[in-house]
Nucleic acid binder design. Structure first.
Lengths: 198, 198
DNA sequence: CGCACATGAGACATTGATGTCTCATGCAAG
DNA sequence: CTTGCATGAGACATCAATGTCTCATGTGCG
């Protein structure tokens, strides 16, 4: 399906390597370049020719993740219809990338001082905008900041991905668990009189 | 204030070392033994005499965190009163440990195959029991499993700790953000559609 | 066929952290 | 004072991962 030729011969399918690296690293975040290479079915030398180093590999994974998240964001049409439904669509579309997000989420802690890819800022902005829209439209409560809700969404995605990987929750419940908790919370809404404010 | 003597002389205050190690590692999770030692104001040799290695240090931090979480759990009296209030108390009491929990949460990913401290299982059990109680009592919705809720609570704690550390949210909102999102979710409960009579 | 070139295999140096060791120092107890 | 002992400083070996390099190989292409 893909006919990528760089000069004359087909080089290693870079995208394929990235995919398998993602699959491995989401399971074993400390995998060495050697293991990544083996998992991709190539030699360490070739892996190193494609990605200057582990750092570059992670950056490439980050770029891949950002691209897919932006695609998911676009597919979710966050500006259309009720914000509630938009959130559902967003989570549903992002779900496949949750493991990779979880990996990068923890990996970013290690980068310490280094500047992070501005792609995340763009995504954060759009997600936060969705929450803001929901608040402005009266669908969402206004005492939780969009920044926190965005942050919490990432956290829930990562937690869920981790919990699924550990076998603590069923994969099929993934979207439902996140969306329902995020939107509705733990409380039953019908029976008891919900109160708020203090 | 503390007069701990191990043999004849005061050895380094082990607990003090642990605290400063926690403070450092929650900020820079990749800090070396050297940095940890410096942060604690002792030499690497002494640090190494107290904790056989980085691994042992992390394990000790884990034990400390577990102990404090169990103390928080006890102080929150999860079996008394409405489950809703118990959750509020729990989060409030656990809050000080959130950064350490976040650190260990990500650190655990690295441990890969190794068995994890059974202390977490005990805590998980009790937290899950609280959610179960809330469900049984009709306070909480029943379509989200206690296991997932427990997992989600950890995730939110970690996310919030991280967000605070990054300066993206105000520290004073910590408990409120977590509790309100976990309990009530994002949706406004009063105004719009959902049929509820108050 | 013969060339070009990407690849695989592996040697090698480098780096950073770790763990171990020794020794001098300082301090408190006897 | 003298002794015992924990400490600080640092040398040192080790280890794992990384990055770089060379070389043989195989295969597509002209």
């Amino acid at each position: 399906m893909s006919h990528v030729r760089y000069s004359r011969r087909m080089a290693v399918d870079r995208d394929q390597v990235l995919r398998s690296a993602a699959a491995l690293l989401t399971r074993k975040s400390t995998a060495t370049m050697d293991e990544v290479a083996k998992a991709a079915g190539i030699s360490r030398a070739t892996l190193h020719r494609q990605f200057a180093g582990r750092d570059a590999l992670v950056r490439a994974l980050e770029a891949l993740c950002i691209a897919e998240c932006e695609a998911a964001l676009a597919a979710a049409r966050p500006d259309e219809g009720p914000a509630t439904d938009a959130v559902r669509r967003l989570v549903a579309h992002i779900e496949p990338n949750a493991p990779l997000i979880a990996f990068l989420y923890t990996e970013n802690q290690l980068f310490e001082g280094e500047e992070q890819n501005e792609g995340w800022a763009r995504i954060d902005e759009r997600v936060a905008a969705l929450f803001t829209r929901g608040q402005a439209g009266g669908e969402f409560r206004i005492d939780l900041t969009p920044a926190w809700l965005t942050e919490a969404l990432y956290g829930l995605l990562a937690s869920a991905a981790w919990a699924v990987a550990e076998g603590r929750v069923a994969p099929k419940d993934f979207t439902h668990m996140i969306v329902e908790l995020l939107l509705g919370g733990v409380l039953r809404q019908d029976d008891p009189a919900p109160r708020k404010e203090s």
